[in-house]
Design a binder for these strands. Structure first.
Length: 125
DNA sequence: TTCCTGACTCCAG
DNA sequence: CCTGGAGCCAGGA
């Protein structure tokens, strides 16, 4: 069956053998515990891509077309701001999903961000 | 091919 | 504390 038309890079549609940046990003994001959040830079660092944090965000942009769904709401910027909220179906979707996870959000910012921060570099083997 | 943009981050001033 | 520039990598016009 041909893949549905998508804006995803060809690499993402490649077999698992050709592991790529996208799959790695999704893999890490899927492991973020409920109620915890992380940022783009930490994921980039964990994947060894150094300071390519923008690529993480870019990958998240494609996460909506992937299954199982990626908890993209758990990835915010280094200040705990919901910088990617406008990429969800509605401007409030990201916050609602976070609150559903038990994460309080006020003024586009994750409350107690520092407390619930989940760093893959230290908590993921 | 070059130029611009982006769900980022760091460093100067 | 705020602002601007650079580095970063991939994709689109």
């Amino acid at each position: 069956m041909p893949a549905k038309k998508t804006k995803l890079p060809k690499d993402l549609l490649s077999p698992p053998s050709s592991r790529n940046f996208f799959e790695d990003v999704f893999d890490v994001v899927r492991q973020i515990p409920k109620g915890r959040v992380t940022n783009y830079g930490s994921i980039a660092k964990y994947l060894g891509t150094g300071s390519s944090s923008r690529m993480v965000g870019w990958a998240m942009n494609a996460s909506h077309a992937v299954v199982p769904p990626i908890p993209a709401q758990r990835v915010v910027n280094r200040n705990g701001l919901l910088t990617g909220k406008h990429h969800f179906s509605t401007p409030t979707q990201m916050q609602e999903l976070l609150e559903k996870d038990g994460v309080a959000v006020i003024g586009n910012k994750v409350v107690e961000f520092k407390e619930i921060f989940w760093d893959p570099n230290e908590e993921l083997i």
